[in-house]
């Protein structure tokens, strides 16, 4: 649910990074935070446990610039990936405008990717959304690790609809902005369709 304010001439949109535990959702946000101009970003808020596992969400507000005199702001959120935080995960999806699914490319995490994707579909459904109709981008993260599955086979498994997908190494940055730009663009195009 985007928020369009004609009075202050602002558009606010919400993008949620989803994926299994330790796939690199928070790392994506941290990289975006690190590489964005100070005047374009707010604080990066992380509600995490002492061992730096996301407990509730991470939040990063980004002000990208103007379109037709409207300030465009994106609010980036991550969900807690660990299975037992299901209840919290569901809450973060409220009012989402676009979803990034961060998949862990390591072969041994394929099962976890599938499970998380299924969970995403169900949770979106409960909020009245259909993943097939939302702006949606997939990132195959951790491409720098030795034991990764080939992108083709991951795409077959996790992305049968063949939505835009990117290879990523969130720790050092490749793919992070490509993913964000893509989903942001889809969100704005969606906005254009409706208003």
């Amino acid at each position: 649910m985007s928020f369009i304010n004609y009075s202050s001439r602002e558009i606010n949109c919400k993008i949620v990074y989803y994926g299994p535990g330790l796939c690199g959702k928070t790392t994506n946000l941290q990289y975006v935070y690190k590489k964005t101009n100070p005047d374009q970003k707010g604080k990066l808020i992380s509600l995490a446990t002492e061992t730096e596992r996301t407990l509730f969400f991470d939040f990063l507000p980004l002000a990208l610039g103007d379109i037709k005199g409207f300030k465009v702001r994106f609010h980036l959120y991550t969900v807690p990936g660990q299975v037992f935080y299901a209840a919290s995960r569901k809450l973060i999806l409220k009012g989402v405008d676009g979803v990034v699914f961060v998949a862990d490319s390591q072969i041994e995490r394929m099962e976890a990717n599938i499970e998380s994707l299924e969970d995403l579909r169900i949770n979106l459904g409960e909020q009245g959304y259909d993943l097939d109709k939302l702006p949606y981008t997939v990132q195959y993260n951790k491409r720098d690790l030795p034991n990764v599955a080939p992108v083709d086979s991951m795409n077959k498994l996790l992305n049968p609809r063949n939505v835009p997908h990117f290879e990523g190494i969130a720790v050092t940055g490749p793919g992070v902005f490509e993913t964000l730009k893509n989903v942001a663009k889809q969100v704005l195009i969606e906005l254009k369709k409706h208003y």
Binding site: M1, F3, Y6, S7, L191, H194
Partner: peptide
């Protein structure tokens, strides 16, 4: 989008 977007107009904003 869900169609429940919040749109704020000048008049209501000032109220």
């Amino acid at each position: 989008m869900s169609g429940s977007d919040l749109i704020m107009y000048e008049e209501e904003f000032s109220r």
